[in-house]
Design a protein around this nucleic acid. Structure first.
Lengths: 239, 239
DNA sequence: CAGATTTTTATTGTAGACAATATGTATTTT
DNA sequence: AAAATACATATTGTCTACAATAAAAATCTG
């Protein structure tokens, strides 16, 4: 019970992050403190500390006297995400190419190996988590405490959006996943070479691929919404 | 003890933020849980929750079994800050001009009035806090949950850097403060007019003013370090 | 006397019990 | 019958006491 005690809380933190990223905990849903505390075998005070940490990272939103809510995805989320993502991703990737240490590059390569494994054998959640981890490591490489907060926030919803719009019935997605994985290899090469400009450009290209995937789900085929409008902003009212 | 109970924790949160921003709590120093709990009249568990929240916002860093440390400023801080600030500030200001509501503009004008008051009568800490609040409101206007985290992190260290390098012996600073205050008025005008391009450009100009101030303290007069090098990176070794 | 080990002490982490708040329901009154 | 109020219940917030960990000091040994 000595080494286990500390890791119970750490495990709780990790697992809640995972459940939120994979939407096992749905956006907007509420977390019951007593129930969660029992699940992870801790009492309520340490669980509440975990929830505060998650709140700071943007995973959940705290409401005074009304509990902890898994960060909701509103109609503005996609629009805001599309605004911020290319800027932050390219800036972070540029800095990663400039500052990455050999140890970090090794770590990134190992992660890419796991990502390829997940593409072959894993389910959607495993793929999404490995992808999140890959880009988190690039964030570590950038080593800029002022950009990391936004990157982390972006990765949360990027992962969740990927889970939301995932559909096993579209075979073309498999091909696009291969392209994404190849781009990950290019990330590694360019970061290892220290080519900041090319790395930043690749980040934009990688983002465009993801963006196109998302838009193909948000905007119904044959009924494209004009560019510049927030994708899917009015869907609820239409159906 | 009814309305007071809730606000004790909220007050604690606010006051710790203020103490950190004004460097009343020095960067890198540690916070004693028992002492802090006594000061704010709460017990340790709620205080610990406050510390977790502050950790998520980047005010403090938690070390396992070793307490809460006020976010330190290392030799890399200034360099990273200089990298991230112009990008985030201009992006946020652009979005603010596009999305600001009338109520928010009123709030910003009230804040600007307080800021002018602080310039006339206040001390360095009061000026710094009002300035921080002004830019926080612009962050609220941008209404982008993916950019706000980095903005908040930038404002923490921007405020602290301003306190660090403040010197009452340089009279030219008074003139520069007037320019900054005038720029704040321009922010209000451009945001109210919805002129996103001009607002973004002003953000860069405002940043350059602040940057020049900081550099004039970091690099000793008559001994300018060539541009491109991290300002002040080697000062410790030189003295 | 130097180094290592053990003991002590201070601080952090956790648990269980208690208080306060908010929501939902039932009852009462108009 | 509808609305408002009061009550009951469930959930969040807080406190005191206890356990565990890490740093520091003191003792012991080579």
């Amino acid at each position: 019970m000595e080494t286990e005690t500390r890791s119970r809380k750490a495990l709780c933190l990790e697992d809640l992050r995972r459940k939120i990223l994979t939407e096992e905990l749905a956006p907007g849903s509420y977390i019951d403190e007593i129930e969660a505390a029992e699940i992870y075998g801790v009492s309520r005070p340490p669980l509440r500390e975990v929830l505060r940490l998650l709140a700071g990272e943007g995973y959940i939103v705290l409401h005074e006297n009304r509990g902890a809510q898994v960060a909701p995805m509103t109609h503005k989320t996609l629009r805001n995400f599309f605004m911020a993502a290319p800027m932050i991703y390219s800036a972070v990737t540029r800095l990663a190419a400039e500052h990455a240490t050999p140890a970090q590059i090794v770590k990134l390569k190992e992660c890419q190996w796991s990502f390829r494994q997940a593409i072959r054998n894993g389910d959607a959640a495993e793929r999404a988590l490995e992808n999140e981890r890959f880009h988190s490591i690039i964030g570590e490489m950038a080593d800029n405490e002022f950009l990391t907060p936004s990157l982390r926030r972006l990765l949360i919803d990027h992962t969740r959006i990927g889970m939301t719009f995932y559909s096993p019935r579209k075979p073309q997605l498999a091909a696009e996943r291969e392209i994404a994985a190849d781009q990950h290899d290019q990330f590694i090469d360019l970061i290892e070479a220290g080519d900041a400009d090319a790395a930043a450009a690749l980040a934009v290209a990688h983002w465009e691929l993801s963006r196109a995937q998302i838009e193909s789900f948000v905007t119904p085929e044959g009924m494209q919404i004009p560019l510049g409008r927030a994708p899917g902003a009015d869907r609820r009212g239409v159906s």
